[in-house]
């Protein structure tokens, strides 16, 4: 698992990195907590899948990327969108279905997009976006570029055919894609053991003759290290990698279901929450003397204020014009 942290793309000191990671993770956490509140108030509708518990993955993985690299993910996409640099305002306004949302209110929670940040969605069919990542990486190679494409999906997606087809072709054609499984241990309410003949998810890499690795997904530096190695391989050797990030979903699958109950116990949830990725990093920083209670409280207040601002912005943003119903069905 985690080795000594390296500094793959940044010249920042460890302390600066720790602070920026803590801020990013806290922002995602507070953003999602307020999303849950907005959902309960009916300001957010439809399906809404929260990222709470998985913030070390988005934060560590995307910290490795260049601005011209690509990111594509599934429907649990709020945290990754924020970590990629989309503003809290544009994401919250999208969740509220408003004009100033990143997709003008037409995509919603599951379909966040930002072309300027090479953030390619936001996709709602389990596993359906994995071939897209192979396609993006194919296009990079086609053009002779040195970017990479990071593709995120839940562990349940490895059971669907699109995963197999996409990884086989990515490996066969040696394209610069990194496939990142966010193993939060439940596909909706179905535990891994009830869905996979082989629970060692990263072992599936052997089927495609590519490197596979399982990583402590609650440790932002372990994530960063593993993704850094994979990205280097993708950029240099054009070899794809399959990474399993072992994490845990602290909330229900979506806002429509219970946090615990029929399919997992409260005791299990409480045990896992002791390894909250924010606590893991916070403890490390406290031990290193990098942060004290006052500084943490201040950071948290800043982040909460940003999310409140996003909420106010989204709430004030008008609904889309009715003419927008028919716009962007086709180009031209």
């Amino acid at each position: 698992m985690a080795k000594k942290p390296t500094k793959p793309t940044s010249s920042k000191s460890d302390s600066e990195l720790n602070h920026s990671f803590l801020r990013s993770m806290l922002l995602q956490r507070r953003f999602e907590e307020r999303s849950a509140e907005a959902y309960a108030l009916g300001k957010i509708g439809g399906f809404c899948h929260l990222y709470i518990g998985q913030e070390a993955i988005s934060t560590g993985a995307l910290s490795v990327l260049r601005p011209d690299d690509y990111v594509v993910t599934a429907y649990r996409d709020h945290g990754l969108a924020l970590a990629r640099g989309m503003t809290s305002r544009s994401v919250m306004a999208e969740l509220f279905g408003r004009r100033d949302g990143c997709a003008g209110g037409k995509g919603g929670s599951m379909h966040l997009f930002d072309a300027k940040l090479n953030f390619l969605g936001g996709h709602g069919i389990v596993g359906g976006h994995i071939p897209l990542a192979t396609g993006v990486a194919f296009a990079i190679k086609y053009r002779g570029g040195d970017q990479v494409c990071l593709c995120f999906f839940g562990e349940a997606a490895v059971n669907i055919g699109a995963f197999h087809e996409a990884l086989n072709m990515a490996a066969l054609w040696k394209v610069p894609a990194v496939f990142i499984i966010e193993n939060n241990r439940y596909g909706m309410g179905t535990a891994v053991a009830r869905a996979m003949a082989n629970e060692d998810v990263s072992a599936r890499a052997a089927a495609y003759n590519i490197p596979g690795e399982s990583v402590d997904g609650q440790d932002v530096f372990a994530v960063r290290d593993a993704v850094s190695r994979a990205v280097e391989r993708a950029r240099g050797e054009k070899t794809p990698t399959l990474l399993e990030m072992r994490t845990y979903r602290f909330m229900g699958h979506s806002m429509s279901d219970a946090v615990s109950g029929t399919y997992r116990t409260k005791a299990e949830l409480e045990e896992e929450m002791r390894r909250d990725p924010i606590i893991v990093l916070h403890n490390r920083m406290t031990e290193a003397g990098e942060i004290d209670d006052a500084a943490y409280a201040k950071l948290d207040e800043e982040v909460k204020a940003e999310v409140q601002d996003a909420w106010d912005f989204a709430d004030a943003s008008p609904e889309p014009e009715l003419e927008e119903l028919y716009s962007n069905v086709l180009v031209g």
Binding site: Y70, V72, L120, G128, H129, I130, P131, L132, A133, T134, G135, V136, A137, F138, A139, I140, Y142, C149, G161, A162, H164, E165, A166, N168, M169, L172
Partner: peptide, 19 residues
């Protein structure tokens, strides 16, 4: 390979980034 879903999706991904 014989993988219609996969290569159709690869086409979609490539089109997203301008091919």
């Amino acid at each position: 390979p014989i993988a219609e879903l996969g290569f159709a999706g690869i086409g979609v991904g490539a089109a997203m980034v301008g091919l």
